[in-house]
């Protein structure tokens, strides 16, 4: 009789670390990074002088976290896609974190967008000095940044609802891989164009 293996268990019988362990590692890594930031850069310099400095820093930090978490999730979905995933629990946790980050980034992005569109703000500057760049890249950024959130929520729902069945369902896991690849691509475009805006004319 063959031994049953779940999605958290690979062919050699190794079991994924449980979700709480993953979260503890994440927490410790975050605290470590905050300590490094605190020791190496004064917080006021880190945030700059704008009245929207705190919100902008939160937006940029969340977007960066989204890229990191999204990239790791993308790799895990690739492993799922080829039927060789060993860390399904990690994928579950990271997909949920990705969806939350995507939502928060959009909400905070809305707050910054007010300053971006305000008279004398970055948008007015780009329209006056380089309208082509504004229309082709930065208008596009405003919308492509919304794409990852609904896709991340849908894929998270599927990963949590179907769990072990996904490893057996090639069609569904292929679609999941395509969806996460598209969301990751949209996220990267928004992230890079957002960084470009910040470098050229920040709020």
């Amino acid at each position: 009789m063959s031994k049953e293996t779940g999605p958290d268990e690979d062919r050699n019988g190794s079991i994924d670390p449980p979700a709480p362990s993953t979260l503890v590692v994440w927490g410790l890594a975050t605290i470590f990074l905050l300590i490094v930031i605190g020791l190496t850069a004064p917080f006021s310099v880190f945030l700059a002088e704008s009245s929207l400095a705190t919100i902008s820093a939160a937006h940029g930090t969340l977007a960066t976290l989204g890229v990191i978490v999204g990239t790791i999730s993308g790799y895990l979905v690739w492993r799922l896609f080829v039927g060789k995933i060993k860390a399904f629990t990690d994928l579950k946790v990271l997909s949920l974190i990705s969806a939350i980050i995507a939502g928060l980034t959009v909400i905070i992005g809305n707050m910054i967008y007010i300053a971006y569109r305000a008279p004398g703000g970055p948008r007015a500057f780009f329209v006056q000095n380089n309208p082509a760049v504004h229309e082709i890249f930065f208008e596009f950024k405003e919308f492509i940044a919304l794409f990852p959130f609904p896709i991340a929520v849908a894929t998270t729902y599927i990963i949590w609802a179907y769990k072990e069945q996904l490893t057996q369902d090639r069609g569904l896991r292929s679609w999941l891989g395509i969806a996460i690849a598209i969301a990751w691509g949209a996220l990267m475009i928004a992230y890079l164009l957002g960084a470009a805006i910040t470098k050229l004319r920040s709020v």
Partner: peptide, 24 residues
Amino acid sequence: MVETIRKPNGPAVAALLSAMIGIL
């Protein structure tokens, strides 16, 4: 041996298609 009940894929289709519909 543990038997698991297979879920129909309709809810997954609904989740992904609705995300596309919202974006479209």
